[in-house]
Design a protein around this nucleic acid. Structure first.
Lengths: 191, 191
DNA sequence: ACGTTTGTAAAGTTTTTTCTGTACGTACAA
DNA sequence: TTGTACGTACAGAAAAAACTTTACAAACGT
């Protein structure tokens, strides 16, 4: 995984143990991004790699098949957590972790949540339109009107929420979010 | 699922179809919250329920076992997407969907992400401390110092990111987020 | 106290997902 | 063109998750 030349066994072991703790913690928590434990582990491992890695190197390091590395890396690149690196002289694909985690965070919501929002809004709008038509066609039917009114209100509130969520994610994408929540912790007032 | 009295078969069918579309869309997208399709479906179904439901009613409606409803509802209550309702006269537990989706969104991050952040920060800090000690014990070893420096920088950047993420989630929790992204879409300037 | 009802734990089954090994298409080198 | 290296699609095996049935403990009514 690294060049341990110039260090004692013990020193190398301490570094490896420190890395391993972090790798496993990251890997374990990456289920929030919808990736499997082992893909999360792969990501964590790559995080400590200074050089871009090939699929073979990953397989070696992870003790897993190259096929698994291929699918794992695909998942991670789809999420823009890892990207392909071009390097002349080798025919192998090289990958490295996207170092800007703020960007990774934003990308995740743009990629996954934004799509989900669009799907839901579309369903909600379509159903709301159908209910509207239904209500208009039989305005004197109280039972019907009552249900249509209740459902319509729910659908509209949901749409309202999703539009807000979309705007929130827009602020992630544009970087505007860093106005409200700066990357640097605000300095305490000096007297 | 509802009182269809006073409506024609056709009308009831249209309402049901409209609901079903939304329920399935919601259910399908709730994997972002780490819940299964069927639990998401359960949530969507309860969303259209006007009254709190019992486990038996859910099982009936979902065509699933009561045990599954029990575990599904547990998942949803843990996420505060659904909560228990007290009603005298019945021994059964009653549950209903939390209607404030903004709150649900905030709770999700507080419950799931905040915990994940804490775990990661703890691992990162511990490993950073170990590396610091390691470096201090052998200051002339260049190979060692180089690795320690590289890893330490990575760990610190990661901690920095997680602290930011924690502050972001704090703004969800406190409602401060609505200052930057208001629930109401800002009105266009009238000339 | 005794019998019911209710919710869930535990064990077992089914379904889904993950991972591996093989096979194949493409790209490059000679 | 032929041969080799590379990444991935595909099929099957292994592992994990979801769901059901059974069983049981706690709470209630009588």
């Amino acid at each position: 995984m690294n060049n341990w030349v110039g260090m004692t066994e013990e020193q190398a072991g301490i570094v490896q143990k420190a890395r391993k703790r972090v790798i496993e913690s990251i890997g374990k928590n990456m289920d929030l991004y919808g990736v499997t434990l082992s893909t999360g582990h792969l990501y964590g491992m790559m995080f400590f790699q200074d050089k871009p890695m090939t699929l073979d190197e990953m397989g070696e390091e992870m003790g897993m098949s190259k096929t698994s590395m291929s699918t794992g890396v695909r998942t991670l690149t789809d999420l823009k957590m890892v990207h392909k690196v071009w390097e002349k002289g080798t025919r192998k694909d090289l990958y490295e972790v996207e170092p800007d985690w703020y960007q990774t965070f934003a990308d995740f919501f743009v990629i996954k949540w934004q799509k989900s929002i669009e799907m839901n809004v579309q369903s909600l709008r379509k159903s709301a339109a159908e209910l509207k038509r239904l209500g208009e066609n039989d305005p004197d039917n109280e039972a019907l009107q009552s249900i249509v009114a209740t459902d319509t209100r729910k659908l509209e509130e949901a749409i309202h929420y999703y539009l807000w969520l979309g705007r929130l994610i827009d602020t992630f994408e544009s970087g505007e979010v860093f106005k409200l929540v700066p990357k640097e912790e605000p300095q305490a007032d000096s007297k």
